[in-house]
């Protein structure tokens, strides 16, 4: 049984309409070819192509990653299928002036969660119903209340270990990293034209996949996403080495939530925690 069973048809109609009325040059959505194990991105230019579009509980990808791409922007205004979690990434892109609201047409889907079994992030989803979209498809889903302590359980599990066990754990995990940068490339918010890892004067982060290079890379990645990451979990899904990257991002989300009462991506207007400050911020731990 799928929580997202009947959306496909209404989604196709909505996409066909915006394409035939030439409101957009392209619709980015999910499709599924024979034999594919999950739904993958499709780029539709004509209304006739909408039969390729699907929405089911294997639509993992966060399609917002394609919005800043020059080859997509060339096609004209971009229509994009967004789940609630994806919308949060779009909000950050808007907030950071990477894209303009008038250049995108948001086709929101009311998503009951993806994955078989359902991903942990979906069981604590607070945005089943994506607000502020141009078109919304799917039936209303009852929004359950999510308590603060439910949000950061993955990070919590690691926090609960003693420090030396944590280091032992991360040494083992980070040693696996092969530096394919799939985590960076799949992230909608890693849109820098040139990543710090690719800057060599000076070479801040060593590119060799040894532990110190991998630690530097993962620390840098986590910090550059602090207060920005929306917790879509794509980095962890695509990691070919199964490194629990989501837990690192969750930890930093928890830090900004607890310290600054900030949660990323719920609005396109808010100020990010590191672009602003409060004179009342904690002084704890400063000599």
């Amino acid at each position: 049984m799928s929580a997202n069973g009947t959306i496909t048809q209404t989604l196709r109609e909505a996409a066909a309409q915006v394409l035939s009325e030439e409101k957009v040059g392209v619709v980015i959505g999910y499709g599924r070819d024979d034999g594919q194990e999950f739904s993958t991105p499709v780029f539709l230019r004509k209304a006739e192509e909408v039969k390729r579009l699907v929405f089911d509980d294997l639509c993992f990808g966060n399609l917002a990653v394609y919005l800043p791409r020059p080859e997509i922007r060339k096609m004209g205004k971009t229509g994009i299928v967004v789940k609630g979690c994806d919308l949060r990434a779009v909000n950050v892109l808007l907030r950071e002036n990477v894209i303009k609201r008038e250049d995108v047409l948001l086709i929101g889907v009311r998503c009951g969660g993806v994955g078989q079994p359902q991903l942990p992030k979906c069981s604590v989803c607070e945005l089943h119903d994506p607000g502020g979209c141009d078109v919304v498809v799917g039936e209303a889903i009852e929004q359950q209340e999510v308590k603060a302590e439910q949000r950061y359980t993955e990070a919590g599990k690691i926090e609960a270990k003693p420090a030396e066990h944590r280091w032992e754990f991360w040494q083992k995990q980070l040693s696996k990293c092969i530096r394919c940068y799939a985590c960076r490339q799949v992230c909608p918010l890693c849109y820098c034209k040139r990543c710090i890892i690719e800057k060599s004067t000076p070479q801040w982060v060593q590119t060799s996949p040894h532990l110190r290079g991998n630690l530097a890379w993962n620390v840098t990645r986590a910090l550059h996403l602090t207060g920005r990451c929306v917790g879509c979990g794509e980095c962890e899904r695509v990691c070919p080495m199964d490194i629990p990257l989501g837990a690192i991002n969750q930890k930093m989300a928890k830090v900004v939530d607890e310290r600054f009462g900030f949660r990323s991506g719920f609005s396109a207007q808010e100020e990010a925690p590191f672009t602003t400050f409060s004179t009342e911020d904690s002084e704890e731990g400063i000599l």
């Binding site: 080859e71 799939a182 070919p240």
Partner: peptide, 15 residues
């Protein structure tokens, strides 16, 4: 162009 629209540009396939 058409067949690389989805490609993220990571190194998984090569590695």
């Amino acid at each position: 162009v058409e067949n690389s629209l989805g490609c993220l540009g990571c190194g998984t396939c090569s590695y």
